[in-house]
Design a protein around this nucleic acid. Structure first.
Lengths: 239, 239
DNA sequence: CGCCAGATTGAGGACGCTCAATTCTGGTGG
DNA sequence: CCACCAGAATTGAGCGTCCTCAATCTGGCG
């Protein structure tokens, strides 16, 4: 579990950088922790000393308005380090929560900073990883602000399909460990309206969604429906 | 102009780090460029070799849906380096545009990377700066997704007031080099509805907005109206 | 079998959009 | 100095999307 998570994480980092053998061998220490559905992984206002590598499940970053309405600003899948950024900014202004059951590897900031100081390549890979997260956030903003509910949902599903595919799932069909309420939190909608939007996509023959498994019946159709262009995920190697 | 911009930028970086004298003396080369209203500063899909330090004006980062609707994902003021991140991720997936007339200092990536390799402190300051931008984006997402139009506008105005204050303007009153259409692009609204929202805040006695100058008549009232908590801007020094 | 969380469906209403017309403003040239 | 113009701000009317507030249904589990 631990090794697999680090493996995925290094693959993610390496996707846009050239690692030497020594870069790849720098596996920091990490402590396995399990969280039940809805558990806080990192709490608001805390000063953290570890970053959280997701080993299993889905973890959401979220914000809350004064009257308690929630909005996810990111979803993290296995192999993502949800708060790598906390290594340089430990004060938490957007907490993390497990959506379903999740396993996290807590990696000490000290080890991450030491790795960054040892290898220029790793330092840049960490920085770049945070930057890509920010680009994804920018795309989410466009999605939430400017697309209608069903297009919005379609776009998120396209993104998740591609990201799950990177970590070994089939793009056509993957287990989505999110309730419709979680999707609502991610999309800036209510769960009622997510439900209707799922139905719209189903009736258009684009997806099915049963027993927490998304099946994409028509990838090109869904992609087109969403206006999904994966460039912002920066999947291809650079240089 | 050039020196003042670097001064503001270093202040920004230094706000959450301890710079040595040598860190502060690393002023990279920079080439001054002027842009008219609505001009692209950085175009979609380009591979950039410079980052853009804003010296005057306002620059917006934006995305577009397939049908051409725009959404800003960030606003950059003088002293911000709008695409510092491009030093590690040069391919542009979210372009930059000047809202009004703007002056930019183009700083070569090579110089930034060299600075980061010379000083561990600078390397971390750059990384952290990108991270803070991402946190601001997360807050924008909450704002756009979950607040009603006038609260949304109030929140943006609070943020801009605080950020302008940091670079020498009065919080009570600052020149807002944005049209209502630009505000709409930033808030995920139409310009018509921004207009009505401005009116609501004016009628509540919170702001006035004449001749491109925002005056905040009741800071506490506006802050409360917006549910604005500046923690996400990470203004205070860390450690 | 009862309970609970999540999914589903219905009805009514609010918020923000669309489309269009009008006014205001600052800048330009005659 | 004024006429003209373009861009921005403002206002109105009608409509659509999405929300709110229920009620009901489903499947898993003790």
């Amino acid at each position: 579990m631990r090794d697999r998570a680090f493996e995925l994480w290094l693959n993610r980092l390496e996707r846009r950088a050239r690692f030497s053998a020594s870069d790849r061998s720098i596996i920091p220490p990490g402590y396995v922790r399990d969280f039940g559905p809805g558990r806080d992984v990192v709490k608001m206002g805390e000063k953290t000393s570890h970053s959280c590598l997701i080993a299993a499940g889905v973890v959401a970053r979220f914000g809350k308005t004064a009257d308690g309405v929630r909005q996810f600003s990111a979803l993290y899948l296995p192999g993502d380090m949800g708060d790598l950024h906390s290594a340089v900014l430990p004060r938490v202004t957007a907490p993390l929560q497990a959506t379903g059951a999740a396993t996290i590897i807590a990696v000490p900031h000290a080890a991450l900073i030491a790795a960054a100081e040892t290898s220029e390549t790793l330092a840049r890979a960490f920085w770049r990883d945070c930057v890509i997260d920010a680009q994804i956030a920018a795309e989410w903003m466009l999605n939430i602000a400017r697309r209608k509910a069903s297009g919005r949902l379609a776009h998120l599903l396209c993104e998740l399909a591609v990201r799950y595919e990177l970590i070994g799932a089939a793009r056509r069909s993957f287990p989505l460990e999110l309730t419709q309420t979680h999707l609502a939190d991610a999309l800036g909608l209510t769960s009622v309206h997510v439900n209707r939007s799922v139905r719209v996509l189903r009736e258009e023959g684009l997806i099915t969604f049963r027993d927490r498994v998304i099946t994409i019946c028509d990838w090109e159709g869904l992609r087109h429906r969403a206006g999904f262009e994966p460039g912002y995920l920066h999947l291809e190697a650079i240089e």
